[in-house]
């Protein structure tokens, strides 16, 4: 098995080197595209299991959810567009696994009109079936309402004022679970999964003004910005990109989509690094050649 793995790695390195060489020789960037495509697809054919190391931010979020008493009420947001599903949906899946496993009451909502309510509906129903959870008793999908700042602020006074009905049009007063949930005061934890700056408002409005703990799952490009909020204690943990989701899945002992994606992501990252190094070597060699010629 180890020998096979070594062969697989050598094969991968050779393919990358060959395609970069072809790009350099022909000045045709399509070889690079071919390499990226190859590295994304290869792990689907050959499984390479990788050890996932845990980062403190992910552990902090996991511990915060784990510390919630059973049957706590948690708000889970689906603040992301379909374009980032590969990164964000595994986070929502992992969060729901954890929450349903702990018998938490889950209120889902979104500030994204394009697909947010549909994604929330699909993901929650999928997992609810696995955990035998009933709509209206164990979870509710509030759906989308326009103007997120007003929505976030307004739910601090009354969720029903902002969302008179759930996503399918049932009045909140007719939903058993919502009878005990009036505003943020009745919500124990907020788990924000987002691919945009709405996170700032969850922190500046909901955490700062209503003291609700807010944990987040963010795309990898967003994550660096939000380390500042973890440092200040305004954010209770963070899943940064697909790696964060993979770490959460590892903690839950439920490896799924994010763990699967780690090999592709690893290979593409390494290829990009390799490309940068190769590009710089070529650049400096060319520069040296030019200066020799001019001398």
């Amino acid at each position: 098995m180890t020998i096979l793995l070594i062969f697989a790695y050598i094969f991968l390195i050779l393919i990358g080197a060959l395609l970069l060489y072809m790009t350099f020789k022909t000045d045709d960037r399509r070889y690079i595209y071919l390499a990226v495509g190859f590295y994304v697809i290869f792990p689907v054919i050959v499984t390479l299991k990788l050890p996932i190391m845990l980062s403190p931010e992910v552990k902090q979020l996991y511990d915060a959810v784990e510390a919630l008493p059973d049957s706590s009420t948690v708000m889970l947001t689906f603040d992301y567009y379909p374009s980032t599903l590969a990164e964000t949906e595994p986070m929502s899946h992992a969060a729901l696994h954890h929450l349903f496993r702990k018998n938490c009451k889950v209120v889902t909502m979104t500030t994204i009109p394009l697909g947010g309510p549909s994604i929330a509906e699909r993901v929650t129903r999928e997992l609810a079936e696995e955990y035998n959870k009933v709509y209206g008793i164990d979870f509710v999908n509030l759906g989308y309402k326009a103007n997120y700042v007003a929505v976030l602020k307004g739910m601090g006074t009354s969720i029903e004022t902002i969302y008179p009905t759930d996503n399918s049009g049932t009045p909140l007063s007719e939903i058993p679970m919502m009878k005990d949930i009036e505003n943020y005061g009745d919500i124990d934890f907020i788990f924000v999964v987002a691919d945009n700056s709405i996170v700032d408002y969850w922190i500046s409005i909901v955490n700062a003004q209503y003291n609700n703990p807010v944990g987040t799952g963010l795309t990898a490009v967003m994550a660096p910005r939000y380390f500042a909020y973890i440092g200040s204690g305004q954010m209770t943990g963070m899943l940064g990109g697909m790696k964060g989701a993979a770490e959460y899945e590892t903690l839950l002992q439920k490896p799924a989509a994010a763990n699967m994606g780690m090999t592709s992501q690893s290979l593409v990252h390494l290829f990009i690094i390799f490309s940068v190094i190769a590009g710089n070597i070529i650049f400096f060699m060319g520069k040296k050649g030019k200066s020799r010629k001019s001398a």
Binding site: Y33, A35, V36, S83, T84, A86, I272, S275, G279
Partner: peptide, 23 residues
């Protein structure tokens, strides 16, 4: 469609890394 558009970024980033990211 949206996922495809977003995924194409990876190809452009890889190409840009090789061609433009210089010290």
């Amino acid at each position: 469609m949206m996922s495809t558009m977003f995924a194409m970024l990876a190809f452009y980033i890889a190409s840009a890394a090789f061609r433009a990211f210089r010290a």
